[in-house]
Design a protein around this nucleic acid. Structure first.
Lengths: 339, 339
DNA sequence: CTGAAAGCGCTAACAC
DNA sequence: GTGTTAGCGCTTTCAG
């Protein structure tokens, strides 16, 4: 910047003013402005964001700590996040918390220490209490997404898990199912809420719920596959399975196929998330569409926009958006209930 | 840092030395060192990476420009990248090039302008020539991954597409298939190499290849699905389909199911990438396993490790790793060829 | 309207 | 061994 100041025959501060479209209160002569702009262009000038940030300006970097990018659902979320950030001329710094808590902690240190203007937590991080605790005392705004049960002190944007599960169960019971099982990942955050809503619904409906009908496994197709096998080995296997995520549902579908169980004739399956693949499973999956775009937009707004909310109050900001049921071909009337 | 210097009763430079484990050539009195460390801890000191970077040190940030995070294959790659980066105490700054070329270009400006120590391109970016051109004159090291045909001036780590396609076709022809079609995304980079290898193989083998047997579509399940429908409408539909990616293969499998074509009885399908879902499709997909971990490790090494290669020579660094065939249940002997 | 100058937090000579 | 000092590239008063 100094070079270009010299070349244009003006002071370096003037260059700064021109290049930053300085406040109209301190105008620059159009002629000077043009000359500076021209010289800057010739020099191929690029502002150094580091120096800028050091001086107190924003880094235009949004930190994202994501539980597991490998999960297509989160991948889509990250894409939406990148898009939303980009629209606000932000870039996304990525960190994944997969693995040891220590890693995630170290990560947030980096993110927080002035590099990012805000941090968004993508996915349940409740099994990493130290991370959460660390973030609560963060100087930069932190927003949590899909954190399930609200994390104290951190504003959050969540999906209405209870509503989603009810949608799925209404659908299934209306079809005539009475023996319905639940397959979920580790009972954290969202998953735990979905499990609780499931149990509550069945209790309210006065339906039987053997302990074995609630399966907990890892949130991968492999986990879903294993769970269905366990379920089928029961004396009275369920006629429908509510999977806590589409990723699990994919495993359930696969295990059904492998063991000769026809979906939806012998077994109905519902997912949760509506990942891109959900429409292309065999058969296409009935699932709950997550309002990802809206959730991300809201989260970014909370993270970046300086509203007047005092820091102490921010933690109370919680938005809950509702999912919608997408009926595809993995659910049908059970065999014993004729039309 | 100044505060802590005052509090500990030493010079700020001493604090810097202690906190950075300064070179042994300028030792610090153990007692002073201890006092500084203690004070720093009390103050909850966190180094400001911005200032550090401004001073010329590295940012410990690795820029990743990824074609489409939504693609599970790239998601896995990013996860591997994050892991490898983390192992070297780096963080990953993410940018996705999905969409307009302008976006990606703007993106690299940000990444390049001193924010990142190196940039890695994940996926074919050959349709964004300006981006590539921009990057070639980059001051920070750039490494390309899955760039397909080599990009001039940028070191690259690629998969051996020719080898992969041959593996798939050897497998299929050995089973007895003679009418084999190819379904690929836009003919760029890797995809184009795969298509070329496919055409070449069939020509060498003296097998028929109607023009319609080479389908180009979008790299999504929807694209794969549409392509298979077109293929089935042909007077002589293929008995096997080589999909250029697993994502396409998922669509092919779905379309087969929807149109009553049984896989592998009526149709064999192979994929490419071995994404996590590949083992859980219906039926499980025969595909080519990508040596992701090795490729990522190599790319990170090229990007971060300052070897002695002169800048002008770096572009000639190209590594090509071979995929391996994973036989699952989506391929079998065609109906008209009895055992 | 424009220039001079003071730092932002840190590192790296260069003294003492 | 430790303190002093000069910037890194930029924004931002404060004077002209």
């Amino acid at each position: 910047m100094n070079d270009i100041a010299v070349a244009a025959g003006v002071a370096q501060s003037t260059v700064s003013r021109v290049l930053n479209d300085a406040p109209l209160t301190i105008p620059v002569a159009p002629e000077t402005r043009a000359r500076v702009l021209e010289t800057a262009r010739r020099f191929g000038y690029r502002p150094n964001p580091l120096a800028r940030a050091l001086r107190g300006a924003r880094t235009m970097l949004l930190g994202a700590v994501v539980r597991d990018i490998t999960d297509p659902f989160f991948a889509v979320a990250i894409e939406a996040l990148a898009g939303e950030a980009r629209a606000r001329r932000y870039n996304v710094v990525l960190g994944h918390a997969h693995g040891q808590a220590d890693e995630a902690i170290e990560l947030t240190h980096v993110l927080e220490a002035g590099h990012c203007d805000a941090i968004v937590l993508v996915g349940d991080m409740t099994d990493q209490p130290r991370l959460i605790k660390d973030l609560q005392s963060s100087r930069v705004p932190v927003v949590a997404l899909w954190q399930g049960s609200r994390v104290r002190g951190i504003p959050a944007v969540n999906v209405d898990n209870r509503c989603g599960v009810r949608l799925a169960l209404d659908h299934l019971t209306t079809l005539g199912h009475r023996r319905i099982a639940f397959v979920g990942g580790r009972p954290l955050g969202d998953i735990e809420e979905r499990r609780a809503a499931f149990v509550e619904y069945l209790a309210d409906a006065g339906m039987d719920l053997p302990d074995e009908y609630v399966q907990h496994t890892v949130n991968t197709p492999a986990g879903g596959s294993m769970s269905l096998r366990s379920l089928r080995d029961l004396p009275a296997p369920p006629t429908a399975v509510v999977a806590a995520t589409d990723v699990l549902a994919v495993g359930v579908l696969n295990a059904a196929f492998q063991t000769g169980v026809r979906v939806p004739d012998d077994l109905s399956v519902t997912g949760f998330d509506d990942i891109p693949f959900a429409a292309y499973t065999v058969p296409p999956l009935t699932t709950l569409r997550m309002p990802i775009t809206d959730m991300i937009a809201e989260a970014v707004r909370l993270a970046i926009e300086e509203d007047g909310t005092p820091a102490g109050e921010r933690g109370r900001l919680v938005r809950v958006l509702a999912p919608t049921l997408v009926e595809r071909d993995s659910t049908a009337r059970p065999r014993d209930v004729p039309t």
